[in-house]
Nucleic acid binder design. Structure first.
Length: 317
DNA sequence: ATCATTTGACCTGC
DNA sequence: GCAGGTCAAATGAT
């Protein structure tokens, strides 16, 4: 990917961020509108049109962003569906040099990093990519003035040479990170990535295309993901302890979570922000992280022009 | 007790 | 000499 294209993607992502922020602000503004306002209906209609315009702009930006990404697999953003099948096969974004003396002593290691083909990924947050990593260093990088973290596969002892560096690209909200992967995983920790992070959950519109997004409605008993029913394997967690907590019956646990969500939807904060909304009119979506430490939910009213999203993180269920 | 993270020191390439 | 990458002891979390 050339620099202009990368900048173009970056600019579009920033635009998406800003429009999303505007969407939330307008929604918030509408929610605090006094009920006795004589022109409330007109104001409400105008709010609806503003939100629709923002939503349309977001859709256009996102589809445009996706087409750029698909033309160049070097940079994969969180808003796209990342494929790891081509790991290590891409051209390097760094200079590739000859003399590949790999893996003997510190000299070999550093040389290996330069000679191998890394692949990069731009993300809104250092997310869980399905593998288990162990941090082994952090450095302040002179050029960017932001720190870079170094991770290696937890299963290095079993011969897995995979490493990655996470470099913060900016201080935006949410901040962008550049993740650079080196070497393929040879270990058995190849869980499918369930990508959702505390930071990105604050931007529900950005995660509409996230994989593994479960959704259900408060007045329905159906639990499903985008592809239909949810296999327990997709709930794989990163630690054995959490697996035990989940038990064998993943669906049953989700059912419990549904109740939890309903109680959250009942919360004062939610209903306050969604005047004239019944619980039955709320649909919710849940995103789970494999670490099970973050569960985010967005719920939207189904009755009118105004969507409201609320985020809650649960440390446990 | 075990495992993960932090952080200063060390090493290598430029 | 500097910047970046890694090591490993110290520290913290579970």
């Amino acid at each position: 990917m050339d620099e202009a294209m990368e900048r173009s993607i970056f600019d579009q992502e920033m635009a998406i961020q800003e429009i999303t922020r505007g969407y939330k602000l307008v929604t918030r503004l509408h929610s605090i509108l006094p009920t006795g306002e004589p022109q409330r209906e007109l104001i409400g209609t105008l709010f609806g049109e503003v939100l629709q315009a923002l939503s349309t702009a977001l859709s256009i930006l996102k589809s445009s962003n996706k087409s750029i990404e698909s033309s160049d697999e070097q940079i994969i953003t969180e808003t796209g569906s990342a494929s790891f099948s081509d790991q290590g096969s891409n051209e390097s974004s760094e200079e590739v040099k000859s003399a590949p003396t790999t893996g003997c002593g510190k000299r070999g290691r550093q040389e290996r990093l330069r000679t191998m083909n890394p692949w990069t990924k731009v993300t809104y947050a250092p997310h869980d990519d399905g593998h288990q990593w162990r941090k082994y260093g952090q450095k302040n990088i002179q050029k960017s003035k932001l720190s870079r973290s170094y991770y290696r596969c937890t299963y290095k002892g079993e011969g897995c040479q995979a490493t990655k560096h996470i470099q913060q690209k900016d201080c935006g909200d949410p901040p962008l990170f550049l993740v650079t992967y080196y070497e393929k995983h040879t270990c058995e920790s190849n869980a499918s990535p369930m990508i959702i992070s505390p930071q990105i959950t604050q931007y529900p519109l950005l995660q509409q295309v996230q994989p593994n997004l479960f959704s259900f409605e408060s007045n329905a008993n159906i639990v499903s993901n985008k592809e239909g029913t949810m296999p327990y394997s997709s709930l794989k967690t990163s630690t054995a302890q959490k697996d035990t907590e989940l038990g064998r019956d993943g669906l049953q646990n989700i059912s419990i979570n549904q109740k939890s969500m309903k109680s959250v939807a009942n919360s004062e904060e939610c209903l306050e922000a969604m005047p004239n909304t019944r619980i039955e009119d709320i649909s919710a979506s849940v995103c789970m992280s494999p670490s099970w430490e973050v569960m985010s939910m967005n719920y939207w009213t189904m009755t009118g022009s105004f969507g409201y999203d609320a985020i809650d993180s649960f440390s446990s269920f």
